[in-house]
Design a protein around this nucleic acid. Structure first.
Lengths: 226, 226
DNA sequence: ACCTGAACACCGTTCAAGT
DNA sequence: ACCTGAACACCGTTCAAGT
């Protein structure tokens, strides 16, 4: 007996799934817990989605869809690319665990394909081979997904190390940081002491990486033109 | 009773783990199956490794260690970077599922830190901020890991779609490819028809992406110098 | 020091049966 | 058409007990 006789539809399964991802993360996400949240039994979910994987695919596709809707394509191709990827990032930031979902999803869902197509369109007039365009788009997409993934991992690790003493993972990390047997300067340690690790996932770092890739694509086009 | 009285050591647990990853992939990897392969009971593994995650961390660290050993640092910084990342890629290709292992591992293991340090050292003399150096290295590392990950996914999906008719995932994919409701040219479809998707994971694509990022870093340094 | 047996608290998924 | 109960074949991990 369901509370308030609420209808179980694909749409509110999806809504509950986002909620659950928000609450417990993707590692602990289970079909049983999702069913609990909806006040139904776990096997019922399988009438609406043929597997957990296909539910995840649907969620990933929703992210792609929203990114597409939020995109505004204006200005030069560099600007278009920059803004589009920034939009993708903000959408990934909005939906919990969406970077992981996109990462483990093969881009076969329709909206994901349209997203890739839109990125390819921006580059289509550049004087480079199709193969190079493809590489460029893959590079950009991987970048934004991996960036948000790292951020998530960083937060998770920080949270886990929060209440530990010197014997914990934090202590081990600091120790190996100090004792790195490297020839030449211990650059990592220097950066750690400059609190640079706190910047992981920051807007500033995001922009830098994105600028690197776009400048690289630009250079590729320049070389072809000769 | 173990065959041939073989000693169970961390080293041969690790060896067996690589074997198991090779045989069944990371999705189906389990501590019980690993124990079977070693002819011991699953709980015995927990005397040597405190968790599955820590075993995976150790494996990831081995990959970093080998990449470090294989690296030869010669030439200009662009060349050093290019060669180093290429070496990392070849090592990832050698160890089964190592891209996934690196992806889900936070770089706290010593050799992984040394690896990052080595990459940072290559950039250390460039006239850019520490933050930019850090972004650059993160960009490169994410690139090579994501590249090999995509390749693995692509193979997995292709294998799964192998023996399916029009009704299967392949049919669905082709259909949505044809029917993409896009404004402007369907670039994705064009590329598919040019067999460009088969190139995913190719050496050629790898080089292109790597060149893009390194050219981008180069540009960053040039801008700072003014 | 190193290993096992039994158990705990979970999974994803299937399927006959219910309404 | 949509949902449930019971079950299958698994997981990771703990822990008292054995040698």
């Amino acid at each position: 007996m369901r509370i308030k006789n609420m209808q179980i539809t694909e749409q509110n399964i999806i809504k509950a799934a986002w909620e659950l991802l928000e609450q417990i993360g993707i590692e602990d996400f289970s079909m049983r817990k999702l069913a609990d949240l909806l006040h139904i039994q776990a096997p019922s979910l399988y009438w609406h989605f043929k597997s957990k994987q296909s539910l995840f695919q649907t969620l990933a596709n929703e992210v792609a869809k929203e990114a597409l809707q939020s995109a505004k394509l204006e200005g030069e191709w560099e600007e278009q690319l920059y803004d589009f990827v920034a939009v993708i990032r903000s959408v990934i930031g909005k939906y919990p665990c969406s970077a992981q979902l996109l990462m483990r999803t093969v881009p076969s869902e329709p909206d994901y394909l349209v997203l890739i197509n839109s990125l390819l369109q921006i580059l289509d007039h550049l004087p480079v081979s199709d193969s190079d365009k493809f590489s460029s788009v893959a590079c950009l997409l991987n970048y934004v997904i991996a960036f948000e993934l790292d951020k998530y991992e960083q937060r998770r690790v920080n949270a886990a190390m929060k209440d530990e003493g010197d014997g914990g993972a934090q202590g081990v990390f600091l120790q190996s940081l100090e004792n790195l047997s490297v020839e030449g300067p211990n650059v990592v340690r220097r950066m750690y002491h400059d609190h640079l690790f706190r910047e992981v996932g920051s807007d500033n770092m995001f922009r830098t990486g994105l600028k690197i890739i776009i400048a690289g694509i630009s250079q590729l086009a320049r070389e072809q033109q000769l």
